[in-house]
């Protein structure tokens, strides 16, 4: 770990200034410290955002929910507004990491968690994301954790966070403050970028940008929603695959609103439009759900170690919709 300076910042403008001068931000520190310990990142300075007063969950006038970027995962998971109106997010958070990590980690930091790709975190191996141009070791390597969707020949790293998958199903947006002070809203679905030939660029965030909040629109809070996470052990593991579903039926029991997203299998939280289309306007029954879920892995490119993720993804999506629809 290279020496760095540490500085707490009191306001977003001050934080942006430090960032433009080369600082990286630290919030809960739970990913940053891992990256520092493994020498994956070498910041000159860490600017501590905890003084910005960005924690807390509130309801806006129109019924939308606003989640402060510095809210801890556990606080959000426990929050009645989230549990009652956005179960998928509360479930995704409750299934993230461990209680200790959840007490530390922030929502904003979770959106920016770096990949768990084994090569990214072992600095002795080539990795385009860590060291652009050095090559991707995962393509022909140990890639059971890697992505089958959204990859490129330069990178197939999974974005490993649970929360953003739920947020895509909730049609949520991220509020970002730019270095100049201007605020902008970015849909979570468009927040992460595909690796393409620049896997080191992971999100739409620019130098000096700060995440202020996440907003879940009112219409999504009227959906029922659910998160299913598949992992190698019963708890405390990143997802091999996950599915987030938000659903609203009309008076006739037909699907009026549906968003489905997948995690653990893609380079960014993956919206499954085709699955949604197969079900919109229909009543849910087991066969229809199963057949719709087959579309989940459309376009998947598999490798030696991750081919299982294609059927797993279909099955996880099927399970999530069936459970939400009371058909499991």
């Amino acid at each position: 770990m290279q020496p760095f300076t540490y500085v707490p910042v009191a306001d977003a403008a001050g934080a942006a200034a430090r960032a433009l001068a080369g600082a990286q931000f630290i919030a809960g520190g739970t990913d940053m410290l891992q990256l520092l310990q493994e020498n994956v990142v070498q910041p000159q300075e860490l600017a501590d955002l905890n003084g910005l007063g960005l924690a807390g969950i509130t309801e806006e006038g129109d019924g939308a929910l606003r989640l402060g970027a510095l809210t801890r995962l556990q606080e959000a998971a426990d929050h009645p507004l989230l549990r009652e109106r956005c179960a998928v997010a509360a479930e995704a958070l409750a299934a993230s990491a461990s209680p200790m990590v959840r007490h530390m980690a922030t929502l904003g930091g979770n959106l920016l968690q770096r990949t768990r790709c084994l090569y990214f975190r072992d600095v002795s191996t080539p990795c385009n994301k860590r060291q652009p141009g050095s090559g991707c070791s995962a393509l022909e390597g140990e890639n059971r954790h890697n992505a089958i969707l959204g990859g490129s020949e330069h990178c197939i790293a999974v974005q490993p966070s649970d929360l953003p998958v739920a947020l895509v199903a909730l049609d949520a947006e991220v509020l970002i403050q730019g270095a100049g002070g201007a605020e902008r809203w970015v849909p979570v679905e468009g927040f992460h970028r595909l690796p393409g030939d620049t896997p080191e660029i992971e999100t739409v965030m620019q130098d000096g940008d700060i995440i202020l909040a996440i907003r879940i629109p009112a219409h999504a809070t009227r959906c029922r929603s659910h998160y299913v996470k598949v992992r190698d052990r019963a708890s405390f593991a990143w997802a091999l695959c996950s599915a987030a579903v938000a659903l609203r039926l009309d008076g006739e029991g037909r699907v009026a609103e549906l968003r489905v997203a997948a995690g653990g299998v893609a380079t960014k939280p993956w919206r499954l439009i085709r699955v949604e289309q197969e079900l919109l306007g229909h009543r849910l029954d087991r066969d229809r759900v199963r057949l719709a879920a087959v579309w989940a892995s459309e376009g998947a490119v598999t490798r030696s170690g991750n081919a299982y993720k294609a059927p797993l993804l279909q099955h996880t999506v099927e399970r999530a919709i069936l459970e939400l629809g009371g058909l499991a």
């Binding site: 540490y6 520190g29 860490l46 905890n50 990590v101 007490h103 530390m104």
Partner: peptide, 13 residues
């Protein structure tokens, strides 16, 4: 009063 992992926290913080 909340449980945390002390290895992921900077002492200054």
């Amino acid at each position: 009063g909340r449980r945390v992992v002390s290895c992921l926290m900077l002492a200054v913080m």
